[in-house]
Simulated assay, not measured.
Amino acid sequence: MLRDRDNVFCFTANNLDNSLSRLTFNSCTASSIPSSTLQTPPPITYTQPGLYNVYFVSDEGLPTMQVDCKQIRVLPQPIIEINNDTLICQRDTILLVANGPNLYSALWSPVHNTIPPFDTTSIRVHPQEDYRYNVHLEFTQGGGCAYDTSVLIRVSKVFADAGPDRFVADGAYTILGGPRMSMGQEYSYVWTPPTYLSSIVKPNPTSRPLDVMAYYVTVTNDSTGCFHSDSVWVRTECTEIHLPNAFNPVSDVAVNRNFGLLNNNVVKLEYFKIFNRWGQVVFETTDTGKKWDGTQNNIELPPDNYVWIIDGYCVNGKRIKKQGTVLLTR
């Protein structure tokens, strides 16, 4: 007869004849099975603590019949105090604690993303995915009862990706945000500062900066409260003249109603001229901030393609000459 933790096993064999050997229990037992006539009975468990008698009868019905009695002491199930299954934010650390009266030792497994040591009643873990941590507990009472349990740690993943640092030509725009940004209806976004941004609450706003800017984005999972932040540097370079290729003086969008420089770092103009298809000058200026509204002498000009030429200087002293066409629509 063998005992392994809370289970009782009996192995019997009658090699000399066909007599029956069996394992029986008294009527007051609380075991999981009342009796067995198998040569190798199944494991036996008890639902209540206490003292129990187990009777073993061999050669039943023969003059050689023998009865053996064993007493088994069943201890109360250990009282365990351990973390409930828990949700944490990615990159966070959580302390797992197993405790109970007369607890002698604890062994945690696996050791994935675990801060050693692993053979103590408490460990710190920092999983990057949902993970179940198992713990084997042994108690000193009654020769060492053992108990196995586990804790599931679920991880809320949030990733902010502001995109790589970049140079943007003066007057041009750039789209912020990188491919690893957490996307979905459960996420909210906040970009700071709002300067030169098309939106501060969209994952991929545009920026047309006047000078060097550092932008920060914070992404939050609104259902879990977990968040992550990232930053990006945007630097401007005055290397080119930038003008729109079309405009509409009656547009609902204010910035589309006039035609002029998009550059912020062109500080001087030798000339800025616009011609109709017959080569007549319909607009000219040396003011970097002045724009054409599609009129000549306060008379609206017809929709058409117009030719422009420009000669100016960047703040860094670089001279830029350029020409092109613009479409006037109404």
Rank of each mutant, 00 (worst) to 15 (best):
23 L>A: 10
23 L>H: 03
25 F>A: 14
26 N>P: 07
26 N>E: 14
27 S>N: 14
28 C>Y: 15
29 T>E: 05
30 A>E: 12
32 S>D: 09
34 P>L: 13
34 P>S: 14
35 S>Y: 15
39 Q>R: 08
41 P>G: 02
43 P>E: 09
44 I>R: 02
45 T>F: 07
47 T>K: 05
48 Q>K: 15
48 Q>H: 10
49 P>N: 12
50 G>I: 07
53 N>T: 12
54 V>Q: 04
59 D>Y: 11
61 G>N: 13
63 P>G: 06
65 M>C: 13
65 M>W: 03
67 V>P: 05
73 R>I: 11
75 L>Q: 10
78 P>S: 04
81 E>N: 15
81 E>Y: 10
83 N>F: 03
85 D>W: 04
85 D>S: 06
86 T>R: 08
88 I>V: 11
92 D>Y: 07
95 L>S: 10
97 V>G: 00
98 A>W: 01
99 N>S: 13
99 N>P: 01
100 G>N: 02
105 S>G: 03
106 A>P: 00
109 S>R: 09
109 S>L: 09
111 V>G: 03
111 V>D: 09
112 H>S: 12
114 T>I: 02
115 I>M: 04
116 P>Q: 08
116 P>N: 10
116 P>L: 06
117 P>K: 12
121 T>P: 00
122 S>C: 03
122 S>Y: 12
123 I>S: 01
124 R>D: 04
127 P>M: 10
128 Q>T: 10
131 Y>N: 09
134 N>W: 08
134 N>R: 11
135 V>W: 01
138 E>A: 00
138 E>P: 00
140 T>P: 00
142 G>R: 04
142 G>V: 06
143 G>C: 02
144 G>R: 01
145 C>S: 10
146 A>E: 09
150 S>I: 10
153 I>T: 00
155 V>A: 00
159 F>R: 14
160 A>E: 04
160 A>I: 02
161 D>A: 08
161 D>K: 07
161 D>F: 05
162 A>G: 06
163 G>E: 01
164 P>Y: 11
167 F>C: 05
